[in-house]
Design a binder for these strands. Structure first.
Lengths: 335, 335
DNA sequence: CTGTTAGCGCGTTCAC
DNA sequence: GTGAACGCGCTAACAG
């Protein structure tokens, strides 16, 4: 049953032609008598011939495969980015082969080795949380395989990077709250070692400064594990004399938890207190009241990163660029 | 810059050995003097040698690539299935290459051609909504490439299939409502041409029969576009004399819409009326009251389908099987 | 233990 | 216009 696949040789034998003639006829190259060309095409169709990509790759020295390494596919953000990648790759005749690092550096290394082994023409990567070592990526580049970082990039690697401006998104969110008249805006911040969390925090701080609002350190809650200590933190926030009148949370999940506890404590959202999240998770639409949030441009990140990677694959002299995309404010009823 | 990749030949030349000796040393095969083996390994490490999978594939007649064709990746269900696939594939040394059909038969055909061209060792597919023609799949099978259908299978193709028992999930949901004492259970049904919708409907009907509850045709609303005509349909449902005391919806989105309108009409969920959905979407946890629903075994479907496919790849005599997995009832506060 | 030979399926000279 | 020969990087069979 194995190896039922038709090859050029099979076609050549049946047609009493040479392999190279058949090859040329199929690829529409050089001068071929229209007669034989027709015959070849007919037989190829009849026998359901499909060119062997593997063999072609070996000769051409390219595989038309783009490797994608990302932390986890079961996430709206990355799934959307991947869709964007597939769209561009498809239109340019590339295939996507992707691997999950599961946020582990060792797995990431395995993924990359695998992609190098397959001789992917280029690699798109969003690094895992505990990736700090640049050496691995430099080695890949030395092999002549271009790498483009998307979403999460590594500082100390010279490469094309497509990221999202978290600072700007946070700024938009807070600016919106200020425009609505809220003045005492608290922030549920993420872990201090997470760069996206820090950027959002800075966007929050800069928006306050810009509009000459005082910064109250007690209004910033750094949360490692908000799901579990939310109640405590929120109570603490509302036991101060300078109670906030709005909350900007580092992500939708935290924002939703806030809404829950606030209602438990008897506050009305958004009348007594407004809440804004970040990510535009599907859940943000459904929660009541529907959550104002920031939509990440994940699809666009995927498209752009892939476009830039293909540019580098097809012209090695393409210079590295760093693109930063912005998110978009989605206004709903929680603010 | 291109083709910086180290080959066996490079190693052999530097070591003044033959290519085959180097190959054998690297693969730990046959008897090799420990001396030369050490040398080879050392140099390979130093030069960062990675075997060329492409070349290996050409010789071995297998690529260790599993092709996956699915309607859309940006869906919790398929993303989870894909995660399951990757786990099994990884552990068996296979790579996943996937394509989206976007629910279009033409795109699906392109995906398959592509995978055949790449000489994938096997294909996992969840067919698009408008796929009815089996010919394409038969052709692939004739080429000796095994196909396993997951989630959505094609009736008239003999192949291994891993699907989900929608009937049973619906039965569980309705049984649960009955156990809670609800007796007049309505059903928001999906389009009649969608097999999963029909199966869920049948599960609903069978549960009612099983517990000797009367079937009221007016309690079944067939919805093509529930998002837009929900209000009308629900009002119609509650204007009858035989008002329902519970609703089983064909999916979570519909269930959530129901909850919204019911509350607008002044009904309390679940006191006045219970609601159960289907899918365990992330949204179902967040909506208030949290939705009782059915968890699809998507991850398990992915794992099992991949396992069975690999069995067929590695032993062509493996007989086709059809596996049907069951969902799980998740009880929350809406019932 | 190691080298030589052949060939996987295809593209690319270079002849005729 | 067409064919023969060679090579891509690697494995496998056969010698020595």
């Amino acid at each position: 049953m194995l190896n039922k696949q038709v090859t050029l040789k099979d076609l050549a034998r049946k047609l009493r032609l040479s392999v190279s003639t058949v090859s040329r006829a199929l690829r529409n190259v050089q001068d071929i008598s229209p007669e034989t060309k027709k015959q070849v095409l007919a037989l190829a169709e009849e026998l359901n011939y499909e060119p062997n990509f593997i063999a072609k790759s070996l000769v051409n020295k390219n595989t038309k495969v783009i490797g994608v390494v990302l932390p986890v596919i079961a996430s709206r953000y990355f799934a959307n980015a991947l869709s964007g990648m597939m769209e561009v790759a498809d239109s340019k005749g590339y295939h996507i082969m992707f691997c999950q690092s599961d946020e582990s550096f060792e797995k990431e290394e395995l993924c990359i080795k695998k992609l190098v082994s397959i001789r992917a023409d280029g690699i798109l990567i969003s690094v895992s949380k505990d990736t700090t070592n640049a050496e691995l990526f430099l080695k890949v580049q030395q092999k002549g395989i271009p790498i483009v970082f998307f979403d999460r990039a590594l500082e100390n690697v010279a490469a094309t990077k497509v990221t999202v401006n978290q600072h700007h998104g946070a700024y938009l969110a807070v600016e919106h709250l200020i425009a609505r008249g809220y003045k005492r805006i608290a922030h549920i911040a993420g872990p201090k070692h997470l760069s996206i969390a820090v950027e959002r925090l800075n966007g929050y701080l800069d928006a306050l400064s810009k509009f000459n609002l005082p910064i109250n350190e007690d209004h910033i809650l750094y949360c490692e594990d908000f799901e579990n200590d939310a109640q405590e933190k929120i109570e603490q926030l509302f036991n101060m004399e300078d109670k906030p009148d709005a909350i900007f949370a580092v992500n939708d999940a935290s924002a939703i938890i806030c809404i829950r506890y606030l209602e438990k404590l008897g506050y009305k959202v958004p009348k007594d207190i407004a809440v804004v999240g970040y990510n535009n998770d599907p859940t943000s639409e459904v929660v009541s009241p529907a959550l104002t949030t920031i939509q990440q441009p994940s699809y666009e990140v995927g498209k752009l990163a892939t476009q830039l990677l293909i540019d580098e694959i097809e012209d090695e002299l393409t210079p590295f660029v760093e693109k930063v995309l912005a998110g978009e404010l989605i206004i709903r009823s929680s603010s």
